[in-house]
């Protein structure tokens, strides 16, 4: 039952990575997607990241009741949870909704209006032309968005912590700068590349194999979001298990 779609998915990916007919046209598409996905998602990522950090600070401070634990721990906790989990995973879930649904509905519409057939007839490898630029766009831009998200999350944490008086600026900075394990950042980047791949490839798969009309395009895009969210969390667990 799961093997049939899985096989189809793998075959589609195989077609996606065929040699492009003409790099110059692909390059144009890649830049277009990078702009759309990267710049287009900047706003929402900034907003959620600031709140992520703020909430983490406030809640950590709430749980830190013991006087034996220094308040500077809050800085470290905000930093590590942003890098390791919150920024890559929450951003990916939000982007699955934003990018995933638009990729699925765009490709799905092209399918039901025979635009994909038109590409095929011209002798163009349609999975490659339509999907490869999106995958490349996502796996280059989403890690960048995650880096921005990490930075803003820490800023959000700092602001919320100092504004509410839960932690002094000095001890937040102290916690932030001590005991940093650079490897956590690597894990974060690995996660975001994998999530980016999941978001675009799952959405493209759903769109590419849409049958029917407008109704089915809507269903494909819903399915794309649901499936990629589940896959993201699953991959999150696997990466954490393997790398940490």
């Amino acid at each position: 039952m799961i093997f049939y779609p899985l096989g189809k998915y793998i075959l589609l990916l195989k077609a996606v990575f065929r040699k492009p007919e003409k790099w110059s046209l692909y390059r144009k598409e890649i830049f277009h997607e990078m702009n759309y996905m990267g710049v287009g998602s900047l706003g929402i990522i900034c907003i959620i990241s600031i709140f992520l950090g703020a909430v983490t600070t406030v809640q950590t401070a709430f749980q830190l009741v013991s006087d034996l634990v220094p308040k500077s721990v809050i800085g470290g906790i905000v930093r590590d949870s942003s890098i390791l989990e919150l920024s890559p995973t929450i951003s990916a879930i939000v982007l699955a909704g934003k990018i995933g649904s638009s990729v699925a509905s765009q490709i799905g519409t092209m399918r039901v209006t025979e635009q994909i057939d038109a590409l095929e007839i011209m002798g163009i490898n349609s999975p490659g032309y339509l999907i490869l630029p999106k995958i490349i766009g996502a796996i280059t831009m989403i890690p960048l968005l995650v880096i921005i998200s990490i930075a803003l999350s820490i800023v959000g944490g700092y602001l919320a912590g100092t504004a509410s008086g839960a932690v002094t600026p000095q001890s937040f900075i102290e916690g932030l700068t001590s005991d940093f394990i650079p490897f956590t950042f690597t894990v974060s980047m690995v996660k975001s590349v994998i999530f980016a791949f999941i978001i675009t490839s799952v959405a493209a798969y759903q769109g590419f194999y849409t049958h029917g009309g407008a109704l089915e395009v809507g269903q494909s895009s819903t399915k794309a979001v649901v499936i990629s969210c589940i896959m993201i969390l699953f991959a999150d667990y696997i990466v954490a298990q393997l790398l940490l």
Binding site: T113, E114, Q115, D117, A118, E120, I121, M122, G123
Partner: peptide, 13 residues
């Protein structure tokens, strides 16, 4: 296929 031109029933532009 590069030698084929096709007009689709729904245009498919």
């Amino acid at each position: 296929r590069t030698e084929i031109g096709m007009l689709f029933q729904g245009s498919a532009l």
